[in-house]
Design a binder for these strands. Structure first.
Lengths: 350, 350
DNA sequence: TAACTCGATGTTAGCGCTACCATCGAGTAA
DNA sequence: TTACTCGATGGTAGCGCTAACATCGAGTTA
């Protein structure tokens, strides 16, 4: 019973192939392909016959073969530092919602904030012939630039608004947003500030926020009480940073946390230490996560378009793949959301 | 200059193909393939020559073609309800860490807790011929079961410990964990409980926790003051649920929130309302997210192996793909972490 | 009626890689 | 020496699908 000669079927699987569907529908394989991929090119009656055959056989097209033949994979590579940071989870949600609507799948990679790992991931994802790539930030290893330059696919950088993107870009100015945060603190009468920010090496978002902070200090004539504290996002790290600031530089009257999780951790530490917020010390965060609006006191923060970065990156990619010529740089808005963790003065608009 | 006859190259891309690497290395294509995929089958000198040629040309293997030819894609489909729930982000991190180490890519799908969307995703992911599938829970649409049954690949169900898994399973007993939570409350002297849980329709984790809660009530002779409140995870929903409970049934002396985010929201609401925790009301959460240990008061909760579920699911999949026969059901441990949001009595071990 | 258009469908030849089998030469056993 | 094994390498034929071109018949124009 086994085939005697060459391999007639290498796959041990019992998968239905397009040929079988074609036979059942009484058409050729290419017509089945067209009925599924470009239905408008197939007569309605034929199409229905094909769809019925697909239904009856339980046919699932082999996209690997289709992609290989057509040179279009309907797959998008997505690289984030980590999914466990909810700002990136929100971005992925935005990407996923738009892409799956259009029939695209997401290939996910996590770089752990390492440019070397990112380069490896780019290489690994390119091997899958994705239709496009969505990456985070604009600071990449040289090898990444080489790879992206050689790969002939659309690339969207997110969470950044660099001068010269690799290809396309969706984000906002981290620097301007941080500046706005400082402006808000200045308007509240705070004068002696501290900065707590994510580790800045290889992280252009964090770096931009520091630059905006520095620009704000200079512009409003404020002073910085101690060098920036670099801490990965976690409540504990925020609490520790708060402790370090008020112990080392008790005259500090406000702290800018470049992340709401850090800021929330600090607020909780203030509670434990009975430090009055916003009077003894003002706290401003960044991202406008849900925790900001629910903390006691409620946390002033900078709202950024976390979900929309993803959704717009996806739309940009799809338009480009559809052959539209598009504006390659999209700069979205941010907004300072004044709440109870900072003093307000009238007319505090940014 | 353009090729006159048939398409000589359909892809407009300038990608390097295996043939070119082979020529440069002075070997055949198949030897290049072997040098990259099964290096031990190639003489060391030859291997080095190939690797040098790969380096020089910047060759990136076309995995689509490779997968099609070999019927192994080194891709794993992962379906979660949403990445924005950090418990699933942690699971994905665990999966990703183990799988990328082994050279596998993740194809990600989000079902939004809908069995119908999940079925669509299973179908879409199967079309990519993944080496395996990791899905969430054990409550699936009929179509999903049909698809998984027909697909001849390993499947891991996670976050559950159903009697009869589709194939493999990594999780813990949500019911036992919830029972343990109630046991802890009972030991603290709480007698009139309320339950706040994720919407239970199509969510076997939530359902299991409710069952464990009910079993705990019966076993310890406690009463439930109002029907379970179903709420999606968010701080606000937790706060609202707390408000609803103490307004509708003020005699309630403890609440079991089947999720730390809900519980944390409730703790914050208690603060706003000056409700004393744990004396006026005890609060216990679930998941042991970082927020639990940082809240004021610190939140008693049930620690569950969020990351390990993903890591173990990945390892299971890899072992199975390597041909090992493995125990298909892995039940991990949970632990009640007693903190300040519930009263303790001595010997409170679960 | 001839010439042409156009929608619908089919035939053929790959996409880039790897499974299968063949080959070949060196080492080993008799 | 002959026969055999065995590691290393290569030739060939697909994997399942779709691009490109061909075909064919009905409708349309002059």
């Amino acid at each position: 019973m086994a085939s005697p000669g060459k391999r007639t079927s290498r796959s041990g699987s019992n998968k239905v192939r397009i040929e079988e569907v074609a036979r059942l529908a009484g058409v050729s394989a290419i017509t089945v392909s067209r009925a599924l991929n470009t239905p408008q090119k197939v007569n309605e009656a034929t199409r229905n016959a094909v769809l019925k055959a697909v239904e009856d056989t339980g046919y699932i097209p082999n996209r690997l073969a289709g992609s290989l033949a057509s040179n279009r994979s309907r797959t998008v590579g997505v690289i984030v530092p980590t999914v466990t940071n909810s700002i990136f989870a929100d971005k992925i949600k935005g990407l996923s919602d738009v892409l799956s609507e259009a029939g695209y799948q997401i290939l996910l990679g996590q770089s752990g904030y390492s440019p070397e790992v990112e380069a490896e991931l780019v290489s690994a994802l390119l091997a899958q012939s994705p239709s496009g790539l969505v990456i985070t930030g604009s600071a990449h290893a040289l090898r990444t630039h080489t790879l992206l330059g050689r790969a002939d696919i659309p690339v969207v950088e997110t969470w950044t608004n660099a001068e010269a993107p690799v290809d396309m870009q969706v984000g906002f100015s981290n620097e301007d947003a941080a500046f706005a945060a400082v402006a808000h603190l200045a308007a509240g009468g705070y004068r002696s500030l501290a900065l707590v920010v994510a580790p800045m090496v290889h992280n252009d978002r964090a770096l931009g926020r520091k630059r905006g902070f520095d620009r704000g200090l200079a512009h409003f004539g404020l002073r910085q009480t101690l060098p920036p504290i670099e801490a990965e996002f976690s409540l504990r790290n925020g609490a520790d940073a708060l402790a370090r600031v008020i112990e080392a530089q008790p005259q500090t009257d406000a702290i800018f946390f470049a992340n709401d999780v850090l800021a929330a951790g600090a607020l909780l530490e203030c509670r434990r230490r009975n430090v009055a917020v916003p009077d003894r010390i003002g706290i401003i965060g960044f991202d406008d996560l849900e925790i900001a609006s629910e903390m006691v006191p409620r946390l002033t923060t900078v709202a950024v378009p976390r979900y929309d970065i993803g959704a717009n990156a996806a739309r940009m990619l799809l338009r480009r793949l559809a052959g539209e010529t598009i504006q390659p740089k999209l700069t979205l808005d941010f907004e300072v959301v004044a709440r109870e963790s900072t003093r307000r003065t009238c007319g505090d608009r940014v």
